[in-house]
Write a protein that binds this DNA or RNA. Structure first.
Lengths: 218, 218
DNA sequence: AGGGATCTTCAGGCTGGCTTTAGGTGGGTC
DNA sequence: GACCCACCTAAAGCCAGCCTGAAGATCCCT
């Protein structure tokens, strides 16, 4: 107990020196509560905690949908314990005694990888484009689009509120070598209106005669 | 050298049994090339590699903006080496000799946390994938899958809601050296539908013509 | 060595997206 | 008001891409 608190203080001091802000909980329940109430970059967790052990706390958090990176500290060093920690949802573990250098390095690795990249989706009013899924929705309604339709709409949405010329659309949605009838753009505009405007009684896809088309911004 | 190759084979065999598709490179340059050309769930890297050591390979990849999780295998056990591995951009390390159980568990943890937050078992609506058991269930019904079927479904499930291209599926579920008919993907998609959709009157595995396949998220 | 499961190849049939066509609509200009 | 030109859109043909059953190849277990 004394030991654990000294260790906690040590870690806290060291991490603070590295620029982390640190909260310390001295038992499992408190830890769980703090973790659910706050958002942390990373959680460092001792397996042997009063009132709720590390494994339990870990899986509780995961069940609750909390995917904050967790570093588990364990006194035992049987390999199956390590595996158990990981399978309980920890992201990494460290067996005591461990070196401070290693702890910091591992925490840095955890934090760095913690949160990042989110699929980009484009919104224009209540119209949402999902490039990863090649589909779109207006409000709550899913709209099925063919790849070509999506490409055209995407080109328009990326410049929502601006006029996009027919040749720009051709350049962006069609193969570079395409040299067919430019009328094809009109055909696709027509199809898009039938899908994203007409059923909703809207008119967001506007023709600008002699210049191109504009997707009305919010 | 002989040793390394035997180890590589061992790991490859074991991982294949876990449903991973495995490519092996026997020197650093090859490894770098393969890593940049393909997309992997995880990279396992020996520190002592001919033609380019593990540290160098690791930082090269990171400089190039490749953040694939990397597991570093090291023969030394000085703690600063471990820290060095981590600071060079590795996500985890393991000192030889290590146990197979630990390697697998750590790899699972790495892969799990590789992209976004990801539970050990992947759920897509009422479809649950159990990577450890190579099986899945829809609602209360257990569904038997072959390793290949599982690999394909796994690749789709990890990106549920997104379109996964046929070549991505090939790259993830088949070996690097596979260069057969891409039609094989269609064959497996067909088999998967027969197992996870048709019996349940669903249609969650969607073809996006000219783009790939999408497993509908919840 | 035999048998079964799994993986892969192959080929025929079909679907549905892409493109073209052609007739219609409406705004702008003289 | 007449004309022209840009644009709209329904319809239809074509063809790449996809589906799927079946047969051959391979691997693995007994």
């Amino acid at each position: 107990m004394e030991d654990e608190e000294r260790l906690a203080d040590l870690i806290k001091g060291g991490l603070a020196g590295e620029g982390f802000a640190v909260d310390v909980a001295h038992d499992g329940r408190d830890g769980l509560w703090m973790a659910t109430e706050n958002t942390y970059d990373v959680i460092v967790l001792d397996v042997m905690l009063p009132r709720m052990n590390g494994y339990a706390l870990c899986s509780r958090l995961r069940e609750a949908g909390d995917w904050t990176p967790i570093m588990m500290l364990t006194a035992k060093d049987g390999i199956y314990d390590e595996a158990e920690a990981l399978d309980n949802g920890a992201d990494d573990y460290l067996s005591k005694p461990f070196s401070y250098v290693v702890l910091l390095a591992r925490l840095r690795a955890l934090v760095r990888r913690g949160g990042r990249e989110r699929p980009v989706s484009i919104s224009v009013g209540d119209l949402v484009l999902d490039p990863a899924g090649l589909r779109c929705r207006r409000g709550e309604t899913d709209i099925a689009l063919t790849p070509k339709e999506f490409a055209v709409l995407h080109a328009l949405a990326r410049r929502a509120g601006e006029v996009v010329s027919k040749s720009d659309l051709l350049a962006q949605a069609w193969d570079f070598s395409y040299d067919g009838d430019p009328n094809i753009v009109e055909v696709y505009i027509s199809a898009l209106r039938r899908k994203i405007d007409v059923p909703f009684g809207r008119a967001t896809l506007v023709t600008v005669r002699g210049a191109g088309y504009r997707l009305e911004a919010a």
